[in-house]
């Protein structure tokens, strides 16, 4: 599997990271080096092996489905780059 400039552009888009056009060929080359390294995994016989979902056999704890926290609007908004009238502010989303 080899990644071309177009695939690199697509991946950057999916990751929501702006990459300038002139940086794409170098990025594709780096991806290829890393994926080449990862390709070693194809040597392993994984027939009948379940993909790991949890590294410890413990069952996740459950709790009652009730509200345990809240009423902290000022704290939630305290670190926002742009907060107005109790909301996070962002550029216009819908036309």
């Amino acid at each position: 599997m080899s990644i071309d400039t177009e695939t690199a552009r697509k991946v950057a888009k999916l990751a929501r990271i702006r990459v300038e056009d002139d940086a794409l060929p170098a990025l594709a080359q780096e991806f290829n080096a890393i994926l080449g390294f990862i390709e070693q995994l194809n040597e392993v016989d994984v027939d009948g092996v379940e993909p790991m979902t949890s590294v410890t056999p413990q069952r996740l704890k459950r709790r009652d489905d009730v509200v345990t926290d809240g009423h902290q609007q000022d704290k939630v908004l305290a670190n926002a780059p742009d907060a107005r009238e109790g909301f996070f502010a962002v550029p216009k989303v819908v036309e």
């Binding site: 991946v11 990751a15 994984v46 379940e50």
Partner: peptide, 25 residues
């Protein structure tokens, strides 16, 4: 971006699931 790629449609099984199986081994 590497993470985005290995989780993207069409590559999830080839990369991510295979890696999780190797992790189990």
């Amino acid at each position: 971006m590497v993470g985005t790629y290995v989780l993207s449609a069409g590559f999830y099984d080839a990369y991510y699931n295979r890696a999780r199986k190797v992790r189990a081994l």
